[in-house]
Design a protein around this nucleic acid. Structure first.
Lengths: 241, 241
DNA sequence: TTGCCTAAGTGTATCTTTTACACTAACTTT
DNA sequence: AAAGTTAGTGTAAAAGATACACTTAGGCAA
């Protein structure tokens, strides 16, 4: 009996995914809309299962809730205040979806940056619950999700600066330097000098130009480049945006 | 009944503390020695309690196991592979200390850097189980603790570089530049040029010299300095070691 | 077919930061 | 008084960061 009680007191463990999306211009955030009424939206997240590790859980939950697949998720950190859930709307929502709605939940947050232009179109069944919201316009989210998003954005910025991989993973194989710059400007939320920006990546030689240019653009066509991963791996200790 | 079974499958949540200690010369790691026989040592860690948040849990566990108090712990990340525990010795040890030794455990790791010279002497009751081991000589630890230590060290180094606070919190109010440099050398595990090191901190003006020098040292006495926290807060975005 | 619009692409001078490097000074101990 | 130890200091060269404006290549519309 003791055993059972102590089990009941076990916290649940969930994962929450902070998915930033870049559409070529602006930084957006993936949110799940809850039931139409009294809806506070939330990050995609759910309890983990018994035999999956945390990374797997995050991928699965993201897939189940949004249809997104093959997204590289990075762990942010754990959030575990006993009073993470205090809002009435949150409690009501939990009652609908959880077997033990009052049990404490510790969540492990993950984040990622994805390309909105390239995403496979979502199956219609998911479509109505998922929304991309401009990061700057994200309103009140459930639980402590606003706090989590703040932390994730901070981490994303740091990450992009000291390890640009997360940026190149988002861009297509061939990209223009302008696309790259727009990405940095959107994530860091600041304008960047074009010449100095190019200089940084070109002199570091982590991008190499291809024999191909943009076509059918109503202005001078831009050169395509690719990311030189090997070169980057050799110099990554010295490269810092 | 379903309820109870699903409870049983709930993972447990623990915290583990990676405590680095600096003795003025070298970087050490706090480890807990398990029972004398077939002992693999481990990081101080234990299950969290119902009504404490994660940070509190880490502090409590550290105190209970080592007597260390008022240590500023930073969260590293969560580790949650279902097969974190595979070593036989680990399983045997768990059987002795846990009610449900086979339940999966997800652990949240914390890290800190403390001053070995300043630590209040440990109560004798703790003394025999706690040991400070040179980081470079740490042997095999239980569970996935070696992996956790590696991650923590990586994070500590990054942290010390982009936010020197963790270093100044360790040093006494007044310190010499040599002490500060030794700290950096020990943590980063590389020699640093004395003149350039001083220049960096002095021109940034985040340390200010006091009217006091070392006494009774068998060499030219060094100037004492203090950390200028306010100044640092103003320029922290631009300071990077 | 010309002119307009748009974004691409380029160089330099200045300033700042980083690096490498060796001797003298001040104190204690013997 | 000499030996041992660590403190403390400056500079020249190289590398990196910053600020900044015009020309070019294409599509489109009049």
């Amino acid at each position: 009996m003791n055993q059972i009680i102590s089990n009941n007191l076990n916290p649940h463990v969930s994962v929450d995914c902070v998915i930033f999306g870049f559409d070529g211009e602006q930084l957006k955030l993936l949110i799940i809309e809850r039931k139409p009424k009294d809806a506070v939206s939330a990050l995609p997240g759910d309890l983990i299962k018994d035999n999956e590790n945390l990374d797997e859980a995050a991928c699965r939950v993201l897939y189940e809730l949004t249809g997104l697949k093959d997204i590289y998720l990075k762990q942010l950190q754990a959030f575990g205040d006993p009073d993470r859930i205090k809002d009435l709307a949150d409690v009501r929502w939990l009652r609908d979806v959880r077997e033990e709605p009052l049990t404490r939940v510790i969540t492990i947050a993950y984040y990622s940056l994805v390309n909105l232009a390239e995403l496979a179109p979502r199956p219609a069944s998911f479509a109505k619950e998922v929304r991309w919201e401009l990061v700057k316009k994200v309103g009140k989210l459930g639980f402590d999700h606003n706090y989590i998003v703040d932390k994730a954005l901070e981490q994303l910025r740091l990450n992009l600066k000291y390890d640009p991989l997360i940026g190149f993973e988002l861009l297509p194989e061939k990209f223009t330097l302008r696309q790259l710059q727009k990405l940095y400007e959107a994530v860091l939320d600041q304008p960047i000098d074009k010449r100095n920006f190019r200089k940084k990546f070109l002199t570091a030689k982590i991008v190499v130009s291809l024999d191909e240019k943009e076509q059918n653009v109503p202005h001078k066509p831009a050169q395509y480049y690719r990311f030189d991963r090997k070169r980057y791996m050799r110099i990554k200790d010295r490269f810092w945006f």
